[in-house]
Design a binder for these strands. Structure first.
Lengths: 194, 194
DNA sequence: GTACCTCCATACGCCAGCGTATGGAAACCA
DNA sequence: TGGTTTCCATACGCTGGCGTATGGAGGTAC
């Protein structure tokens, strides 16, 4: 999720504010960084603009989350669908999603702000979509429903942990040289038959 | 990490404040919840007490984190050492650490606040200790150093993801009935020989 | 029992961010 | 070109949290 630094624009739209909010969340401040006045400064505007587009801070959060939910997960899943073989798809998905450059601080920040009800709802939606996709993938690979769900969960948990670790303690991740072997080991463990 | 609600105490120690800070972090507010005046209210005291024990808010955070680092990880590791067989130890560790009741919001909150330099340092310490322990465990099980490190990482990532998921979207976790099979599947995957 | 030392309450000034009110500029329309 | 609508800047009050200053209560020492 690349969200560009907004520099200046004579007139702003509600989406401009929502994007700025997401950028601010991802920039490390967490949900607390969605603060009207600092955002206004960053956009080269003032609160006057904001309170014309939104009723209050909550409304902005709502809009920003809605934007995140609909764009973030679907485009990755869609990108995978060009590969017909489910095993290769899993391998590609993991390679893609653990790429060191992929770091998505926004998602981590949202995970961190799950205390907020609107964030919790957005996360639930996205999480279920993803785990569902993974589970389906293992079903395609011939596992029973129960086993597919277990492995879908394992896969997602691993992804979450990896992302978290890469953000919090990047030095603990494997080096670039070790990386392929590491990803392969994970996928191998996930695919192994009893 | 059970940190009791402090109710009232005629005189407070610095550790009382540090514990209250950890409790507040864990209670969902994240690092932002380490706020002097609310904490004082909660302890039935006032800022006067706080600023006698600490120079400022930063000093409190520092003290709280130090307390967390030294108590949290070591006691779990120590508890495992009664089991001589490394495979059983791994199984026991995972069972223990994924127990639904185990939910440790404090750790999640710290992960979320990794933007703060002191938190980052504390997390690095704890993370390396844990991954090191897991890696050693796989070494004991006869894996090569490189393989042991890979599996140690996989195990830790899984743990992190599981914890995260349990906190953010608990409904996505397996039900109580599915739980043993789920844990066993994970441990099985981790122990699988090539 | 008095002098001192430890710990804390109260009161204060300061700053940042939220939300409101109001006037005005820019675009659009006729 | 005059009116209307859209969008925004400025100014204001309010709240909550940080840090400081000061006085005082309750132990302790002798």
């Amino acid at each position: 999720m690349e969200r560009r630094q907004q520099v200046k624009k004579s007139r702003l739209s509600a989406d401009d504010w929502a994007d700025a909010a997401l950028a601010a969340i991802g920039a490390g401040g967490g949900l607390a960084a969605v603060a009207v006045e600092p955002l206004a400064a960053r956009l080269g505007a003032t609160k006057g603009s904001f309170y014309w587009h939104f009723g209050n801070r909550e409304a902005l959060i709502e809009a920003a989350l809605a934007r995140w939910v609909e764009t973030d997960t679907e485009q990755i899943i869609a990108a995978m669908q060009t590969e017909p073989d489910p095993e290769k798809r899993l391998r590609r998905l993991f390679t893609e999603v653990t790429r060191p450059a992929k770091h998505d601080p926004l998602e981590l920040s949202l995970l961190a702000s799950v205390g907020h009800p609107q964030v919790a709802a957005a996360l639930k939606q996205v999480t279920e979509r993803r785990i569902g996709y993974l589970t389906g993938l293992f079903t395609e690979l011939g596992f029973t429903d129960a086993e597919a769900r277990r492995r879908g969960l394992m896969a997602y948990n691993f992804y979450l942990g990896h992302t978290q670790l890469g953000h919090a303690v990047p030095s603990a991740l494997p080096s670039a040289a070790e990386f392929p072997g590491y990803v392969e080991a994970v996928v191998g463990a996930l695919l192994q038959r009893a």
